[in-house]
């Protein structure tokens, strides 16, 4: 691989560009490919298979060729509602996983920069905050304030925008009340039951770090299903 190509990959990824890297295993020639862009003569004959692999985000040697393809894709966005103690541990765990965390919390005491370094924090109410970020069906929501004023609008937004994972902290009783409020707003039973609550996989822990671990474990498990 050429040093220039390595630098280009790093630059494109720092700009959050998604692309594939193609390598001819017989010559070690590599190039970057983005859907819609032309391919060099080296790879032109396998255009259809290359595009298919890109669409499916599939890595590997393309059948009956000596072309290796590797997709460079963005990490999963995890929107955390509440800059609470659990969130501080979530941020730490996420560093070595394929997640990128954005925190929303209207309470400025919680969102102080000393508590969260190098993390995108939006110090605003959810209805305003969601206007400032891009979300899609590849986004996850983790609601941790257990304050209906903050969590409820976030859950509604996530349900309407079909987030791939929605989890909310709170006791069984809190969740029963929460479901009732969503029902009154017209959300379907199927949508409501898709919310993971109590949030996280069962580890039995009660401390902030243990709860964060159980949440991040559930996120890993759910993201590997899709």
């Amino acid at each position: 691989m050429k040093i220039e190509l390595l630098e280009e990959i790093i630059k494109k990824r720092s700009l959050k560009k998604e692309f594939a890297l193609l390598t001819n295993l017989e010559t070690s020639y590599s190039e970057i490919f983005e859907i819609g862009e032309p391919l060099s003569k080296e790879f032109e004959n396998n255009k259809n298979e290359i595009i298919n692999h890109c669409k499916l985000k599939k890595n590997g040697i393309i059948e009956k060729t000596q072309i290796f393809i590797q997709n460079y894709t963005n990490p999963i966005n995890v929107v955390v509602i509440g800059a609470v103690h659990i969130t501080q541990y979530l941020v730490e765990f996420a560093k070595n996983l394929n997640f990128e965390i954005t925190i929303i919390d209207p309470r400025s005491y919680f969102t102080s920069e000393n508590r969260f370094k190098d993390i995108k924090i939006i110090n605003d109410w959810p209805s305003e905050a969601f206007k400032k970020i891009v979300t899609n069906s590849n986004t996850a929501l983790v609601a941790l304030t257990h304050d209906p004023k903050i969590d409820d609008p976030s859950l509604q937004y996530a349900l309407k925008n079909k987030f791939f994972y929605i989890g909310a902290l709170g006791s069984k009783k809190t969740h029963i009340n929460r479901c009732e409020r969503l029902r009154e707003l017209g959300f379907a039973e199927k949508e409501i039951s898709s919310i993971h609550s109590p949030i996280g996989i069962k580890l039995g822990g009660k401390s902030a770090s243990e709860i964060a671990l159980s949440i991040i474990s559930q996120l890993v498990s759910e993201s590997n299903k899709s």
């Binding site: 040093i3 790093i10 590997n224």
Partner: peptide, 18 residues
């Protein structure tokens, strides 16, 4: 899916080369 780790390796490679 574990792209982030691979990207860290590429960045490290660049540092070594430098």
């Amino acid at each position: 899916m574990r792209n982030l780790l691979n990207e860290k390796i590429l960045e490290e490679a660049n540092t070594w080369i430098k």
